Amino acid sequence: ETKSLTLVLHRDSGSLGFNIIGGRPSVDNHDGSSSEGIFVSKIVDSGPAAKEGGLQIHDRIIEVNGRDLSRATHDQAVEAFKTAKEPIVVQVLRR
């Protein structure tokens, strides 16, 4: 079962304390579909994302501050987090 969660993150020394993997390839599949998503791959101990109620590894990131990342490329997702103003509201899907 997958549930949708909304989390609020604040940077600590400029970092949110997690890494992402995935992202849509720069070239779409011929039918326009994509199974890619942006997923949390690593969480830094005691970083902002590790706090209670924070992110978990394998969370799929859907949205950052209202910006849809469900079909974003990896670079677009990285840029969305880099430029996001605080508080950073992150919507994820968690299995």
Results as ranks from 00 to 15, higher is better:
H58S: 09
A50W: 07
H74Y: 15
S70V: 07
F18Q: 01
R71I: 07
P87C: 01
K51T: 10
K85F: 04
N19Y: 12
H58L: 07
D75R: 12
S26R: 09
V92N: 03
K51A: 12
G32P: 15
I57Y: 05
R67A: 12
I20E: 00
D31R: 07
S34H: 13
G32R: 12
T2D: 14
S46E: 14
I57H: 05
I43C: 04
D45H: 08
V27G: 12
S34K: 13
A50Q: 12
N19F: 06
H10R: 14
T73N: 08
N65Q: 03
G14V: 05
V8K: 15
I61P: 00
E63K: 14
E63I: 04
F39I: 06
L93H: 13
L5N: 03
E52T: 11
D28I: 09
R60V: 03
I88N: 00
I61N: 00
D75A: 14
D12A: 13
D59G: 00
D45E: 15
S26E: 14
K42W: 07
G66E: 02
G53V: 10
P25W: 05
K85I: 12
H30R: 11
T6L: 07
S46T: 15
R24W: 07
F81S: 15
H58W: 07
A50P: 08
N19A: 06
L5F: 11
E1I: 15
R71Y: 13
N65L: 00
F18L: 03
D31C: 09
N65S: 03
D59N: 01
G53Y: 07
G37W: 02
K85D: 13
S26G: 12
G17A: 03
G17C: 03
L93V: 14
N65P: 01
T6N: 04
G23C: 08
L55R: 01
I88F: 04
L55F: 04
R67G: 04
G14Y: 05
T73C: 05
D68W: 00
P25S: 13
H58I: 02
E63M: 10
G47Y: 07
H30A: 13
V64A: 08
L93F: 04
K51P: 06
L16M: 14
D59A: 00
L93Q: 11
S46C: 08
S34E: 15
S70M: 09
R95G: 11
L69M: 11
L7Y: 07
P25R: 10
A49H: 12
H58E: 06
S41N: 10
D28K: 10
L93A: 08
I38C: 04
E36N: 11
R94Q: 02
K51M: 09
D75C: 07
D28Q: 10
L7T: 05
T2K: 15
E86G: 05
D45T: 10
D68F: 00
D31L: 09
I57D: 05
G32S: 13
P25G: 13
G47R: 07
I21W: 05
H30I: 10
P87R: 02
D31S: 11
G14N: 13
H30T: 10
A50C: 13
K51W: 07
G23K: 15
K3Y: 15
I38A: 02
A84K: 02
